[in-house]
Write a protein that binds this DNA or RNA. Structure first.
Length: 634
DNA sequence: ATCAAGTCGA
């Protein structure tokens, strides 16, 4: 046989003789199988198919590498996606969009923005509309406004300037960066608005606290789905409109929207925490169980926090110990909850269990722990924890954590050490940190240091009314009348801007709200008489009204009358009149409990032999037998 | 191949 004949035979019959086949015919089957991997979130199958593709030598044969890249991204395997991406000899726009999406999905937006410029420097490609959208998404999650604006500028000059999807991501980027009005102008320029565009804008308004704009947009939207309801409700809750958030959730239920995803529930549970509404919180818990999300980790975390914030530590513990898995948030919620309710031992015990369970604590955990030590006077333990945090867990403490530690040192009387720390710590001290130190100076009677710190505080732009009260007391105690009148003047200016106080009392089935100075209530006379009786009895036991908490300038007797009308007293009196014997009285106040009411409530708890729990704007007070769980620092 | 919703702190 001549060589040419042999070659032609080989060409036509090689498949038969040598087992060769045209491998490119396998591509459609690979693609199909890979798409199934994405659909069923089966990364291990994808890896097997990947191996087969490499064996067959088709691994550089598009669209296989791009599809593989996509599958790894969608299955949340950014490292595998990255390896593949780097090995690719020919990368196109699809490869780039896929790798950037993989990083976004894996919550690595930093990676997205740090590699995208290689798209033009190495691969000589210009971004297309897909790449613009992924980039803007990364900017949105990083709140990277400067970069976002640069991408916007480039997009406007690109051939894709009319792309509505990119515009939706621009809306989201500006909304997340806190610029809802710019987001709105982009939103208005979208020709065909989808539910994504509407939700992005809605969420922007709601999170920025623009309640009316959010509601208007929500009502105007052509359709509503679980996304838009969740965006509205969570946005309202995040910007402090918890009552509106709960109300809209009730509306959502009324419309019969199927809760096919538990995200919205975590927001509603969060709203219950903020409002400390135990009854509604319990109902929401019931709904969580009813919709089958009881075992969902982040919902359980939210429930633990909710019960702790509603002062129902038993219920919090119940949810916590029934959880099948617990992450750092679960443990931290319990630790912080115990700490805030003055249960230092329990908080420290939980920490030991947490370490044993192999869960790594974070900064929030240590805030809870140091806070617990601070309130129980456990200086040595607190110092140990602070050290362990830095050395064992490599956490560099934030200003808040330093403030917490400063509080621990100074409360326990280590004033000089605390002052050294505030001067040498790697942060500029703020109002809370100086105030913590000053409060301890006053408590331990160090007026020399107190005055030094007071003068520093006076130079700051103070936000907390309690800081003014503290300053005024320190100056008064030292006879510095000039400074004191200056503080009083600042306080009077501030009083105008203060929001009105109210307290609500939770009696299980009903709850009542009392506003400061409220005079018309059906049970006004009974409440008034009870308060007068309690006033007389507490005075017998040594209570003297401390009128330094009254910010108005008026006569002493007027001031005492003013204290008498504080809303928490009325809520407690009402609770005492109506509560079933043997139950605790739960009060929620929107402002901080003033020092005078604090002293009054301590004595009241021993007179009526009842536990009174008050949650104020900053902490929890369990009044029992004449004592308070906050240890009288607040 | 791209864009929308959630949970822990002084």
């Amino acid at each position: 046989m001549s060589p040419s004949n042999f070659l032609s035979l080989l060409d036509s019959q090689s498949k038969l003789y040598l087992g060769f086949q045209d491998l490119s015919t396998l591509i459609p089957s690979y693609l199909h199988r890979l798409k199934l991997c994405t659909k069923h979130q089966a990364p291990s199958n994808a890896k097997k198919i990947h191996a087969q593709i490499v064996k067959s030598g088709l691994n550089q044969c598009q669209p296989l590498p791009n599809t593989l890249l996509n599958v790894y991204g969608k299955c949340n395997l950014p490292q595998d996606a990255q390896c593949l991406f780097e090995e690719m000899t020919q990368r196109d726009h699809v490869s780039w969009a896929s790798i950037l999406t993989a990083y976004n999905l894996a919550k690595l937006p930093n990676k997205t923005v740090s590699i995208f410029h290689y798209m033009f420097t190495i691969d000589r490609l210009q971004p297309d509309h897909f790449v613009y959208a992924t980039l803007l998404k990364a900017c949105a999650s990083l709140c990277a406004l400067r970069l976002g604006k640069q991408v916007h500028a480039r997009f406007v000059l690109s051939p894709f300037v009319d792309d509505d999807v990119v515009k939706s991501s621009l809306v989201d980027m500006y909304a997340k960066c806190g610029l809802p009005s710019i987001a709105r102008s982009v939103f208005d320029s979208i020709l065909v608005k989808t539910s994504v565009s509407w939700t992005a804008m809605l969420s922007g308004y709601a999170r920025s606290g623009l309640k009316d704009e959010a509601m208007e947009l929500f009502l105007r939207a052509p359709a509503r789905n679980l996304y838009s309801w969740t965006a509205l409700i969570s946005g309202l809750v995040q910007s402090g409109y918890c009552i509106d958030g709960c109300y809209m959730f009730i509306e959502m239920r009324r419309e019969g929207v199927d809760i096919s995803d538990p995200l919205v529930l975590s927001s509603v549970v969060g709203a219950c925490s903020n409002l400390a509404v135990l009854g509604f919180g319990r109902q929401t818990h019931g709904l969580v169980i009813g919709s089958g999300y009881e075992s969902c980790l982040f919902i359980s975390n939210a429930l633990v926090d909710m019960y702790a914030k509603c002062s129902d530590i038993l219920a919090a513990r119940n949810v916590f110990y029934r959880m099948l898995q617990r992450d750092v948030v679960s443990w931290t919620s319990m630790i912080v909850g115990a700490a805030q309710h003055g249960r230092a031992e329990e908080a420290l015990d939980l920490y030991d269990q947490m370490v044993l369970a192999g869960v790594k604590p974070n900064e929030v955990t240590f805030i809870g722990l140091i806070y617990a030590c601070s309130h129980a006077g456990l200086v040595i333990k607190g110092r140990k924890l602070f050290k362990a945090m830095i050395e064992d867990y490599r956490i560099s403490p934030s200003l808040q954590l330093f403030t917490c530690f400063l509080d621990l040192l100074s409360r326990s009387g280590h004033l000089n050490e605390a002052e050294d720390l505030i001067k040498t710590m790697p942060h500029e001290p703020d109002e809370p940190s100086w105030a913590a130190l000053l409060s301890s100076c006053k408590h331990h009677g160090n007026s020399e240091m107190g005055l030094r710190i007071a003068d520093r505080l006076l130079n700051l732009n103070l936000l907390e009314p309690s800081t003014y009260v503290l300053l005024s007391n320190v100056y008064a105690g030292a006879g510095k009348w000039e400074q004191m009148s200056r503080v009083r003047k600042l306080m009077a200016d501030m009083e105008v801007k203060r929001k009105p106080g109210y307290s609500s009392v939770d009696l299980g089935k009903e709850s009542q709200v009392f506003h400061a100075g409220e005079t018309c209530h059906p049970m006004k006379d009974e409440i008034f008489n009870l308060l007068k009786e309690l006033d007389a009895e507490t005075r017998k036991r040594g209570y003297v009204p401390d009128t330094s908490y009254v910010l108005h300038d008026m006569e002493e007797q007027e001031k005492e009358r003013e204290l008498f009308w504080h809303s928490e007293r009325w809520a407690v009196a009402y609770g005492l009149l109506k509560a079933v014997p043997g139950t605790v009285i739960r009060i929620v106040k929107n402002l901080r409990v003033c020092g005078d009411c604090h002293a009054f409530l301590k004595l009241t708890s021993s007179i009526v032999h009842k536990e009174i729990i008050v949650r104020d704007a900053t902490r929890y007070h369990h009044f029992k037998d004449g004592r308070c769980s906050c240890n009288d620092f607040w």
